[in-house]
Design a protein around this nucleic acid. Structure first.
Lengths: 218, 218
DNA sequence: GCAATGTATATTGGATACAATATTCATTAT
DNA sequence: ATAATGAATATTGTATCCAATATACATTGC
């Protein structure tokens, strides 16, 4: 008799569930900037006590997604344009280098996953779908070579900036341009041209930054 | 009658205190890699309950300093050489760019702080002092221009890698070489030569990486 | 009416108590 | 002796309760 290595990976703790849900809500923009996260309210919504909620909030604070003031509570962080600019500058730098490293050791499975995300991104019609497939596309490429810490830094930056980018994408039509740029990046990766992939990715992000900052009135 | 805006900034919560202490202990290497953090033990040491301890551990996990497994506990993360290499690669990239941005808008106060740290680093005799003054030197420069997120990423990376670097510094004599390199970086910043400062900083970190990896037997 | 002050309420921070799970060790059958 | 089993213990996860603080409102004195 044989058993699957059945998702022994232990069910997530209540704190994990709350953390993931709150993080998603903030990243997606479902929780407006500046919103206060009331522990009791969240606890009731998830039908748990405040203890796991507090743990989740502590983790969110470490990610910079909320700011807490003692005896005042936790509030969804609102970033000034200057910090958004800084985050995109960091992204352009780190993601460019990540894809340079990845393109030099590209794998078929990563290319397939990126291609799939690319198509889904092109077909997507809602901002929510755009953001999801966009992240899937980029991260599939960055992950080549097991760049755990690069990916970690990048995902943190995406978590901080995605809601601002999403709001902009809803207004302007950055989508078409992004699809074209993704196609070029994918080609460069297929060709194993690390330098080109890096340059394209860096420019791709700088473009997004400029469009976003213009949207914010700068 | 007039009062100072007396550090009303509220005393830190117990969770903050525990978090800062544990983080320092891990970063400094006082807690060996793989050590289990038992909640009750820590709570007793700080004379608090396990609640703030759990909050602190949750935050440490978010930083990658500990890994927790449900119903098993939290353990100080031990990084394989490959990840250490990756972290130093990231550091070389990000710190190089951070100082490029900073050197172009250098201030007198930052230079004075860096100079002070530079001298203290040169005079320091213990690994603990080295690490502290080294961080002070670099971060004083990176902070110019209020690069909050650059600094955050860099500090996270330093927190992850410092204990490995410290162990290596205790063995080899990287200290003298570091002093010389710091002097050059400081000169470049005084001269406002951003390109040179960036190149020197990147090389400085790459050198440290190579020495460390050699020490780890690779 | 208005400013200052006191009080009630809401909300967060923390401690204690209990539940769930893992680990260790003794026990037992083969 | 050894492998399997089950109880005892240790440790983490969570709920409930209390304390500390902030905020909003009422009260008082002018």
């Amino acid at each position: 008799m044989k058993f699957e290595p059945t998702d022994l990976s232990q069910t997530r703790s209540a704190a994990d569930v709350v953390f993931a849900a709150l993080r998603a809500a903030i990243v997606n923009g479902d929780l407006e900037n500046g919103t206060q996260l009331r522990q009791e309210e969240i606890a009731a919504a998830f039908k748990v006590s405040r203890i796991p909620v507090r743990e989740a909030i502590a983790r969110l604070e470490q990610l910079g997604l909320v700011e807490t003031r003692r005896y005042k509570g936790a509030f969804v962080t609102d970033l000034p344009p200057q910090e958004i600019e800084e985050i995109f500058r960091l992204r352009a730098l780190v993601e460019g280098d990540a894809i340079r490293h990845a393109a030099a050791r590209m794998t078929g499975t990563a290319l397939a996953e990126a291609e799939s995300a690319h198509l889904a991104f092109a077909d997507a019609a809602t901002p929510a779908e755009w953001m999801e497939q966009n992240r899937r596309f980029h991260c599939a490429l960055y992950a080549v070579g097991g760049q755990r810490h690069y990916l970690g830094v990048i995902e943190n930056l995406l978590n901080l900036s995605d809601r601002y980018l999403r709001a902009q994408l809803s207004l302007t039509d950055g989508h078409r341009k992004a699809v074209e740029e993704h196609a070029l990046i994918l080609d460069a990766c297929k060709a194993g041209d690390a330098t080109l992939a890096a340059r394209l990715t860096t420019q791709h992000i700088k473009d997004a930054k400029l469009a976003l900052l213009k949207c914010l009135g700068h």
